[in-house]
């Protein structure tokens, strides 16, 4: 690879520039929209004529606040709780898969696979029916539970892959020193596995944050409605006015945390996604 000609190198750099443009243009567009005044939204150009913060003040303190702020709170709570539960459960499962030999190991992995490809919409109706009978409809736990179906499978794979890469001799050494399997797991493996667990948590959080189907189907008010669902029920300054500006501003706000995570933990996330997914 060291033997790259100057021309070749230039070409790859051009490619890199293209990637950056590709990735950032649509995001830049929605940011630009969010700074357009209501009368400026139809200016048909990429940039606002005069940038204004009115859309942001609208969703944080104006008419939209009543809808947006609770939704933001719900999203944060639901996604964090779902991520934590999924990562903890997946951590145990992944340890068992990577380290232990037990009948049904393949079954666990296969069912994780099956759940990952399961059409989400199929889950919605029966869950909706069950939830309204047992009072989980439009509640935080009513969203956390189905979110586990989204976050658990990928957590199990990603972490199994990480755990396989851990030097297990150290665990065996600990066991020889008299520690039980459990102690070996806790004292030796947990610190080694922490980066993998952390990466998995970020990926699981991304997936939970992205959900839309459960959000619009299993909630109905600001009691539990997450942001993506709230976005689609935003309203303009009057009943018939399109809430383009407010939606754009809210979209930018919900994009900030995930983009920050991506920026800060880029290396880990790339490693997590590639490790967990393909390993020959």
């Amino acid at each position: 690879m060291g033997a790259m000609s100057r021309k070749e190198k230039g070409l790859w750099y051009l490619g890199a520039l293209f990637i950056v443009l590709y990735a950032l243009l649509p995001v830049a567009w929605i940011v630009s929209l969010s700074f357009k005044a209501e009368s400026d939204l139809a200016n048909r150009s990429f940039l606002p004529t005069n940038a204004t913060g009115e859309n942001y003040s609208g969703i944080f303190s104006g008419d939209g606040a009543e809808l947006f702020l609770p939704a933001l709170r719900n999203s944060v709570i639901v996604c964090l709780v779902a991520t934590v539960i999924a990562v903890v459960l997946a951590m145990f499962a992944a340890y068992a898969i990577a380290r232990l030999d037990f009948p049904g190991k393949r079954l666990v992995l296969t069912s994780a696979l099956a759940v990952a490809v399961f059409p989400v919409i199929t889950m919605v109706t029966p869950l909706f029916n069950l939830w309204r009978q047992i009072g989980l409809y439009d509640t935080i736990p009513g969203l956390v539970i189905p979110y586990l179906a989204l976050t658990l499978p990928i957590s199990i794979w990603t972490m199994s892959a990480f755990f396989r890469g851990i030097p297990w001799d150290m665990e065996q050494a600990a066991q020889v020193d008299g520690a039980t399997s459990w102690q070996a797991f806790r004292k030796v493996i947990v610190p080694l596995a922490a980066p993998g667990v952390f990466t998995t948590a970020i990926i699981a959080f991304f997936i939970a944050w992205n959900d839309f189907v459960f959000g619009i189907s299993l909630t109905s008010t600001s009691r539990a409605q997450p942001v993506p669902a709230a976005l689609s029920s935003f309203t303009g300054s009057s009943y018939f006015v399109q809430p383009t500006g407010a939606i754009s501003a809210a979209a930018v706000i919900v994009t900030i945390p995930v983009v920050l995570l991506a920026l800060v933990f880029q290396r880990r996330i790339v490693a997590g996604l590639t490790n967990g997914a393909v390993k020959g």
Binding site: R132, D138, S220, S233
Partner: peptide, 23 residues
């Protein structure tokens, strides 16, 4: 007050789903 979605059809969806659960 609790706010329903903006579209009439979506408002109906939300209310019916709750009422069907004897909420």
């Amino acid at each position: 007050t609790s706010i329903l979605p903006s579209q009439a059809a979506a408002q109906r969806e939300q209310l019916m789903r709750r009422l069907a659960g004897n909420d």
